[in-house]
């Protein structure tokens, strides 16, 4: 697999993973760019016999997100989860606007989770890894990952139902 093939196959997944953590698209672009630059830099060291390529790439992505979060805390910036998303100036068709609103609600629900649950949701729904692989990456037990995932989804479900009823 060449690096370009890796990029084409995983860009969307990595972007989504970062997006679950970072709510501003511009910042998501920045972090995603850094992840793929690091991946290109280390691409020569990747060995297929050590594990699947998505686990390797998402390890880099996870470290980049952790570094970003640490840097943000050090700088004392306002959490981006609390920051409002900038409104688009361009008028959009109704369906697209609805989709955007729904996606925004999902992201808000993910942002309301604690750091660990958010990471597990992001890994589960963007990396394509199973619970065992996520457990190996996060250092948790496989059954623990399953329970955290279930609780996180139930919590999000409750939050979204409450919001959609309003």
């Amino acid at each position: 697999m060449t690096f370009t093939e890796l990029y084409d196959r995983f860009f969307n997944k990595v972007y989504n993973y970062v997006r679950y953590h970072v709510r501003l698209p511009a910042e998501t672009d920045d972090i995603t760019g850094r992840i793929f630059e690091a991946a290109l830099h280390k691409f020569g060291t990747y060995r297929a016999e050590r594990g699947p390529v998505n686990a390797w790439l998402f390890t880099i992505a996870r470290n980049a997100v952790i570094d970003w979060a640490r840097g943000r805390n050090r700088r004392g910036e306002i959490s981006l989860e609390d920051a409002a998303e900038p409104a688009s100036a361009e008028p959009r068709p109704e369906a697209a606007l609805e989709r955007k609103e729904e996606a925004g609600q999902v992201l808000e629900a993910v942002a309301a989770l604690d750091e660990r649950s958010r990471d597990i949701i992001a890994l589960k729904f963007s990396s394509g890894m199973n619970n065992r692989e996520i457990a190996a990456m996060t250092g948790l037990g496989e059954s623990n990952v399953g329970i955290l995932l279930f609780r996180a989804v139930k919590k999000m479900q409750a939050a979204l139902e409450a919001k959609r009823k309003l």
């Binding site: 860009f11 989504n16 511009a26």
Partner: peptide, 8 residues
């Protein structure tokens, strides 16, 4: 969900 369309 796919947010990658937002990427510039």
């Amino acid at each position: 969900s796919d947010f990658s369309g937002e990427s510039l």
